[in-house]
Amino acid sequence: MTRENVASGRARLAVEHSGSASGAPVLMIHAGVTDRRSWAPLVYRLGTAVHSIRYDTRGYGETEYDAEDGWSPVSDAVAVLDALAVDRAIVIGCSMGGRAAINLALAHPDRVRALVLIAPAIGGAPAAELEPIVAELDRRIDAADASGDLDEVNRLEAEVWLDGPGHADRAAPGARALFLDMNGRALAAADPGAEASIGEAWPRLAEITVPALVLIGDLDLAHVRRNAHHIATSLPDAELVELRDVAHLPHLEEHPETLTAIARFVAAVSQRELP
């Protein structure tokens, strides 16, 4: 395993990569409540035949940065690929990381060999209509945040994103402890600045022609499940896998169906000849 810092604008991105440098590059972009450590179960499952690359985005983990308006998650991802001399990668993104992966595929189609999208966010999606239980959790999160109780914010966000709304304490202790540490760091982090404005991806999905795998848990939020279905049916070459008994972060929970589906997809893509 190699760790290094990659410069991108005013950020020094904390990057970790392992496996075979001659294997298929796999770039992993984490969710907005985790950091690069969330990918450990998947890295282990993919093994040493691929070149697994993961990094902390601005505001997360060990990445250092100065506030910078107009910074771009897409430019940061490209900086990581360039620093590791990777021309084209299989890009795996969860939630916020899924949005970055989609935007990367639209802005730089030559850099993306395939997509794996886990509960992806996407720009331009219809406004979310929160179920009553989610709306109540959201209200409690806002109240805790307003009072400065970040520990309570963290605990409530664990129910929303790790356990699934209404399933508090469902996840295993190890996954919970890691979630609380990763998200706790993010909640306490300094503001990295306003992201660059970017066009909406929702109406442009048909432009992404690379193979794609979309995964969504049955305990995830209703609008996230809706968006995943739309993305899977709008991408020209996509497969949708609906996951049982898991919410927004199935890879963090070492969900067997998730790890198996991704490993099979990565192996299949890796064996294809590049066009």
Rank of each mutant, 00 (worst) to 15 (best):
Y55G: 02
V224K: 01
R54D: 12
Y65H: 13
E131T: 14
V112P: 02
A89S: 14
P275N: 09
D163I: 00
A128Q: 02
A100C: 12
G166L: 03
A261P: 11
G61L: 06
R155E: 13
R3I: 10
A7D: 14
A100L: 08
A267M: 08
S8G: 10
P256V: 11
G97V: 13
H223V: 10
T233F: 07
S38N: 05
E200W: 04
E253P: 00
L117G: 05
R140A: 14
G184L: 00
G23Y: 02
A85I: 08
I141D: 09
H223P: 13
R36I: 10
L13Y: 07
D149S: 09
I102V: 13
S234L: 05
H230C: 12
S52D: 04
R99C: 13
V160P: 04
D66A: 15
G61S: 11
L221N: 06
Y60H: 15
G184N: 00
V134H: 00
I262V: 11
L106C: 06
G98Q: 03
R37H: 09
S197R: 14
D66E: 15
E207C: 03
E239L: 14
D163M: 00
V43A: 09
I141W: 03
V50P: 04
S95F: 00
R58S: 08
G148T: 12
A267C: 07
L130H: 10
A201S: 14
A40L: 15
A238C: 11
R88E: 15
R88T: 14
A40R: 11
R36T: 13
S18W: 11
R139D: 15
V246K: 00
A232W: 00
A79T: 05
T260V: 15
A201C: 13
E200Y: 12
R185Q: 12
V78E: 10
R99I: 07
A222R: 07
A189Q: 01
A107N: 02
P256S: 08
E131I: 04
H230L: 10
V116G: 02
M1F: 12
M28W: 01
G166D: 04
F265Y: 07
P25S: 07
A105E: 00
S20Y: 01
D169L: 04
N103Y: 01
D76H: 02
L130I: 06
H223C: 08
H230A: 14
I216K: 05
G123Y: 03
G61N: 03
E152Q: 15
H30G: 00
A85Y: 05
A188F: 11
D191L: 03
A206K: 11
L215A: 10
L117T: 09
G124E: 07
G166R: 05
I262P: 04
P250I: 10
P211C: 14
A268L: 03
T63D: 06
E254F: 12
N103A: 10
A247K: 03
A85E: 15
D151S: 13
L13N: 11
D151H: 03
A49I: 08
E253S: 12
I92Y: 02
D181F: 02
V33M: 09
A144W: 08
S72I: 05
A105N: 09
A194Y: 03
S72P: 09
I102N: 02
L178I: 06
M182F: 04
